[in-house]
Structure formats: structure tokens, C-alpha cells
Amino acid sequence: MLTEHVHIMSLLGTAEEIVGRKKFQKVVYIGKQLGMPFHEKYGFHMYGPYSEELTIRLDELKQFGFIRETHEECSGYSQYRYELAESGREYLTKTTRSWTCHDEKVVVDELNACTSKFLELMATILYLQPASKEEVIERVATLKKTQNYSLADIDEAYALIDHWKQSIAKATLTH
């Protein structure tokens, strides 16, 4: 039953914590594009791909007491910290999981270490596929004008996406 919820909890269990709603949104989106079994539907919004379905799913998990959301004030702005709650861990140990997120730990940790701004760029690049890199550069410049991404940022994003795709393919093969 709770398959989609369990996938989100598995991700959070692997990441240990995710700080920021925007970061959570982008980590799941990029993970989905890299082949992780997330089925949340995404549309393009102010900060790139965003899923209302994921927002509500997180609300549901909070309501069940399976995840903890902590509101923090940090240098003049507020952010939310997400962690698995005890009952969430208990549920994960009790349930049979088709996907644990263990094989993807390295990728998840690297994703989680990126800034939200950089994740926004990577998620946007993935959303614009299958456009060519030239077209992506042009569209990022207009769609993400205020973020001022440089060409070096875009190159780095492409390189990381490739690196993660290979890591996941390798982990799948090894598995």
C-alpha cells in the first residue's frame, strides 16, 4: 500500500536529513530522472520542477508521525528540516520494501550536499530534456535570469548528472 510514501521515507532514511523544502523537491525530481522509483508528478514552477503531489505526501507522512519537520529561522529566512521519526523507522523495518535506496546512498549524499540553487539548475536542465545543450543554455538564461547561472555552472551540472547516471548504472549492475 504505502509504496510511494515508503520510497520517500527510504530516501530520507538514507539521506539522514534533508534541509529545505526546495531541496527536498529537487532531490526527488533529480533522483526520479536518474531512475530512482519516484512517481510524483512534476510541473515547472518558480524554482523549476515542483511537485504538489510530493508536498502533500510529506504532509501525510508528517500527519502519521513518520517524518519530523522542524521549522528553523536561519539568518533572516526560514527553512524546514526533515528527518525520519522513530515510528517511521519502525514502519520501515516492519514493511517489505521493493526499493531501499541503499545502492544509491553515494548519489543521494552527493545530491544532498549540493546547494538548493545548484539543484534548481540541475533539475531545470533535466526538465528541459531532450533539448540540446545549446538550447538548454539559452533557455536557462531566460527562464532563470535572476539566478545568474554561469556557463561553468551549467557544465558542472551536466558533468554531475552524467557522473550520477554512471554511478547508479554501476550500482545496479553490481547489485
Partner: peptide, 19 residues
Amino acid sequence: FSSDLPYDFYRPGEEEERL
């Protein structure tokens, strides 16, 4: 679950990434 449904409502003051 409500997250399985394709509808949303306006969340005053907490629209997050939606304008």
C-alpha cells in the same frame, strides 16, 4: 490518499514554489 488525487487548493501564505 489525498496525494493520489490531481487536485490542489490554495494554501494561503505558504505557496512554496507556486506563485
